[in-house]
Amino acid sequence: MTDHAAVVHGSPVAKARVDAFLHTVTSPPLRGAGNRATSHDDGPAGRQPAAALSGSAERQRRRWATQVVVVDELARRACEERNLSVPDEVSPAHLLTVEDVGSIVAAALAHSPAARLLLTELEAEQTVPETAVRDYYERNPDRFLTPDALRRGVDPFGRAAPTDFLAYEQVRDGVERDLRRAAGRRAFFDWFDQARADVVYAAGHEHPGDPAHADHEHRH
């Protein structure tokens, strides 16, 4: 019987790492959460104590945990390649996020300091053109109503006066920051899709949505 859960770029990832991660999560991931790892979407769903899980649910929980650990391993390698020093601690707040969010990538960002560091670096690398900032401001007037206009119920797409909107100069930096963050997330998902392409999983540790195993869940 193999003692590894996956092989990442030729190096085994021990099952013990998956077990250690499972011990930090007091409840299972959201139902169907394994599939949202690739759709980048999260949603509400019921949870139950880990002890009450069926055999199928427990197997899916282990597959989900394997995916989270693999993201952590891939992110650590990426940080090493970039000469980034990864902190070791995981705060209780991040562990709580792991319980509540469910999706693989979101759980990995909560669990893995390396994944968070890599995401931060990718965000910092993004360049947002001034034209993109201005275009966002002009296409989304509903987001830039003044407090007074909001109180009066002004329709931003109707007969609104120029004074009903926050000036571009007031909101420009915030818009740029949000667009850079969104671009960083896209860069992170692109990195992950490429980095995981050659990962080989041991039996019982496949992706939760892999149709090759009987317990798979794949919802849209």
Rank of each mutant, 00 (worst) to 15 (best):
N35P: 00
R36L: 12
S39F: 03
S39W: 06
S39D: 08
G43E: 09
G43W: 11
G43Q: 15
P44Q: 07
A45R: 14
A50G: 02
A52V: 01
G55K: 14
E58G: 10
R63Y: 01
A65Q: 11
A65I: 03
A65C: 12
T66R: 12
T66W: 02
Q67Y: 04
V68M: 10
V69A: 10
V70L: 05
V71C: 07
L74V: 00
A78V: 01
C79S: 11
E80V: 07
R82S: 13
V90P: 02
S91F: 08
L95R: 15
L96N: 07
V101W: 12
I104W: 01
V105F: 10
V105K: 05
V105S: 09
A110T: 14
A110C: 15
A110P: 09
S112E: 06
P113G: 10
A115C: 14
R116E: 09
L119N: 02
E121S: 08
E121I: 00
E123Q: 13
E125R: 14
E125W: 00
Q126H: 05
T127Q: 11
T127H: 12
V128A: 04
P129C: 03
A132Y: 03
A132E: 11
P141W: 02
D142N: 13
F144R: 13
L145Y: 04
L145T: 08
P147G: 10
A149N: 09
R151L: 14
P156A: 02
G158A: 10
R159M: 08
R159W: 01
P162R: 13
P162S: 10
T163G: 07
T163F: 03
F165N: 04
L166R: 15
Y168M: 12
